[in-house]
Amino acid sequence: MRITLNNREEIIEADQLTIDELIKYKNFTFRLLVTKINGKLIKKENRKNAIIKDGDNVAVLHMISGG
C-alpha cells in the first residue's frame, strides 16, 4: 500500500498495518511518540488496534527533551 508517513509518500509491503506494526516495520525506537492517522490522535493504548490503510496520512512524531 501507499501511505503518507510524516508528510512523505511511502510504499509499505503490506495491505494494512496497525500503528504498532508500522513502528516495528520502520524500526522506530523512539521512547515517546505522538501518533496520528488522517489527523486524528491515536493514543498509545490504541496503537495496537488502529489500522492504517492504503492512502492514509500517518504521523509518527517523537518527543525529545530540550527547551
Binding site: 515517546l32 505522538v34 490522535l41 493514543k43 518527543m63 525529545i64 527533551s65 530540550g66 527547551g67
Partner: peptide, 27 residues
Amino acid sequence: DKAEMKHMIIETVLENFPDKAIVSGIG
C-alpha cells in the same frame, strides 16, 4: 524542556481542542 511534558500537552490539546493550533519546539 522535558519530552514527557511536550508529549502531555500535545496529546491534551489535540484531543480536547481539535481546532486550536499548537506550536511545539522539538530538537
